[in-house]
């Protein structure tokens, strides 16, 4: 008899304990800083795209979720420093498993991941994100491409100063886990 009441006592004592439930839609708790969320295509500080259309991300992808079509930059129409840029860039989020191998493969640190995860959609076509959706917003001082190189005469000037001006990937570069970001002192 007493044992059964003792059992209820355990339940009742939870009335006075702190509630562990997260109030998700109203309050969104920040994820771990390196949580693998949806991708971002970064920009150089003058607004040119970092992506050079090399397709290494597409090659690294184990789920074949990335589709890239490169094209040549011309002097009149320049989207990225260097020779090539990605004319078509798509990530199929109905396939992407957020493993981050594309991020590791990217040679220009163009592709990084954000912590955004609210991606559900009622159509499969909407889950294929195009380049317009993936590109980072233009920050103050950036100019929408195409435009000529503003930060130097060749793409080398862009790449050498890369760690100092991480662009939209600032979070990933500047976090305490990244020594390059700390030494760069671009905070």
């Amino acid at each position: 008899m007493f044992e059964s009441i003792k059992g209820f006592g355990v339940t009742f004592s939870h009335m006075f304990k702190k509630v562990v439930t997260e109030e998700y839609p109203e309050v969104r708790k920040p994820t771990a800083p390196r949580y693998h969320g949806r991708h971002i295509l970064n920009r150089h500080p003058d607004g040119l795209e970092k992506c050079v259309g090399c397709e290494l991300c597409a090659w690294a992808c184990p789920a074949d979720a990335i589709y890239v079509e490169g094209a040549d930059n011309t002097e009149q129409e320049r989207y990225s420093p260097g020779e090539r840029y990605a004319a078509v860039y798509q990530i199929n989020y109905a396939r992407c498993i957020f493993c981050g191998l594309c991020i590791e493969a990217c040679p220009t640190r163009s592709l990084t991941m954000s912590n955004e995860y609210e991606l559900a959609s009622d159509s499969r076509a909407d889950l294929i994100y195009t380049k317009e959706q993936l590109l980072a917003p233009l920050l103050p001082g950036m100019e929408a491409p195409p435009h000529p190189m503003r930060l130097g005469n060749s793409e080398k000037d862009y790449y050498i100063s890369g760690p100092d001006n991480p662009g939209a990937s600032a979070g990933a570069e500047r976090a305490p886990y990244s020594t390059a970001g700390r030494q760069g002192g671009a905070s």
């Binding site: 839609p25 969104r28 994820t31 989020y93 957020f98 995860y117 991606l119 559900a120 959609s121 889950l127």
Partner: peptide, 26 residues
Amino acid sequence: DHIVPVDMYLPGCPPRPEMLMDAILK
């Protein structure tokens, strides 16, 4: 959706519980 009509697709591998709740709320 080859078998049954789907009302909401939720990407993620696996999706975190918040993502599932987001899909359900949508």
